Simulated scan of single mutants.
Amino acid sequence: MTGIALLIPGGRGQLGTDLLRCGRGVVGDGDLVHGPGSAELDITDADSVDTAVAGLAASAAEAGVRPVVINAAAYTAVDAAEADEASAMRVNRDGPARLADACTTHDVALMHVSTDYVFPGDADRPYEPADPTGPRSAYGRTKLAGERAVLDRCPQAWVVRTAWVYGAAGGNFVKTMIRLEASRDTLSVVADQIGSPTWTGDLAAGLIELAGRVAAGQAPVRRVLHCTNAGQASWFEFARAVFAEIGADEARVSPCTTADFPRPAPRPAYSVLSGNAWAGEGLTPLRPWREALAVAFREHRDELRGEPVG
Rank of each mutant, 00 (worst) to 15 (best):
M1L: 04
L7D: 01
L19R: 09
G25D: 14
D29H: 13
P36L: 01
G37D: 11
S38H: 13
A39H: 02
V49R: 10
V49C: 09
V53W: 12
A63D: 00
Y75K: 04
Y75V: 01
Y75H: 13
T76S: 15
D79Q: 10
E85F: 06
A86V: 04
S87C: 05
M89E: 12
M89H: 13
A100I: 11
T104F: 00
H112K: 02
V113R: 01
D116I: 07
G121V: 10
D122P: 00
G134H: 12
A145G: 13
E147I: 01
R153Q: 03
V160P: 05
G167D: 03
A169H: 14
N172M: 05
F173V: 14
T176D: 09
V189Q: 13
A191D: 15
G206Y: 03
L210A: 12
A216K: 06
G217V: 15
A233E: 03
G247N: 06
A248K: 01
E250W: 00
A251R: 09
V253R: 10
P255S: 03
C256G: 08
T258H: 01
A259I: 03
A259E: 11
P262H: 11
P264L: 12
A265K: 08
P268R: 09
Y270T: 06
S274W: 03
G275T: 15
W278H: 11
W289G: 13
L293K: 12
V295N: 01
